[in-house]
C-alpha cells in the first residue's frame, strides 16, 4: 500500500486535457449505442465525469447533452464529482445487512464525518454504499480501493481505515 499515496495524484487525467477523451471517442466512433461504454471509459480516465468533459463527449459523439446527463445520473456507477484518494465501499447486500452492515456504515460516518456518497474535505476518503458484491460468506464487508475487508466488526473499522489515512500509507497514530 506504500506507494498508493503518490500514485493516485497522477492516476487520473485533468479535465482540461481533452486528449484521453479524444482517444476514447475514436475507439467507439461509429459504434451503435456506445454511450455507456463511452462514459465508463471516460470516467476511468478522468476519475469522474467533469462538466467540461461531458459537454465535449456529447458534442464529439453526437448526443444531446441532456441524453448524456440523463444516462450519467441514472446509473450509480457514474460520478459527477471528483472522489477522494481512497474509495470505501460498504456492501449492503442482504447477507451483509443481516450481519450488521448499517452499523459498519454508521461507524465509518462517525469516524470520517461524512455521509454516504460524500468525500472528506481533505479529499482522502469517499464513502459509498454498494449493493451486494457477491462475497456473502465474508459478510459484513467493506472494500477499500481494491482490498476487501471481510467479517468486519464496527469496533474494528477505525483501525482498518487508519491504515489508509497517512500520506504514505503509514499509520497516523
Amino acid at each position: 500500500m506504500d506507494d498508493k499515496g503518490c500514485e493516485c495524484k497522477q492516476r487520473f487525467a485533468d479535465p482540461d486535457n481533452q486528449e484521453p477523451l479524444l482517444g476514447i471517442l475514436e475507439r467507439y466512433a461509429g459504434e451503435k449505442g456506445a454511450l455507456i461504454p463511452l462514459l465508463q471509459d471516460t470516467q476511468e480516465a478522468y476519475g469522474y465525469l467533469d462538466e467540461k468533459i461531458m459537454r465535449a463527449l456529447a458534442k464529439g459523439a453526437g448526443y444531446q447533452l441532456s441524453q448524456v446527463y440523463g444516462v450519467a445520473t441514472f446509473y450509480t456507477q457514474f460520478r459527477l464529482e471528483p472522489i477522494g484518494e481512497h474509495l470505501i465501499r460498504v456492501c449492503h447486500g442482504t447477507a451483509c445487512h443481516v450481519a450488521g452492515a448499517e452499523l459498519i456504515s454508521e461507524e465509518i460516518s462517525n469516524f470520517l464525518g461524512v455521509k454516504d456518497g460524500q468525500t472528506t474535505p481533505d479529499m482522502k476518503f469517499t464513502l459509498e454504499s454498494v449493493m451486494c458484491v457477491g462475497a456473502c460468506s465474508l459478510s459484513p464487508i467493506m472494500i477499500v480501493d481494491e482490498d476487501t475487508h471481510g467479517k468486519l466488526k464496527p469496533a474494528n473499522v477505525r483501525k482498518v481505515l487508519k491504515k489508509y489515512r497517512g500520506g504514505n500509507g503509514e499509520k497516523e497514530e
Binding site: I36, V71, Y75, T76, M131
Partner: peptide, 26 residues
C-alpha cells in the same frame, strides 16, 4: 461484452435492452 453501470432494474429484459442501446435503463 457490455458492462452494466449499476442499476438493478437492468436485469429486467426491456431495461437491459435499453441499457445496451446506451439509454437510461427504464
Amino acid at each position: 461484452i457490455k458492462k452494466g453501470a449499476g442499476a438493478f432494474v437492468c436485469g429486467e429484459e426491456t431495461a437491459l435492452i435499453a441499457s445496451i442501446e446506451g439509454k437510461r435503463g427504464m
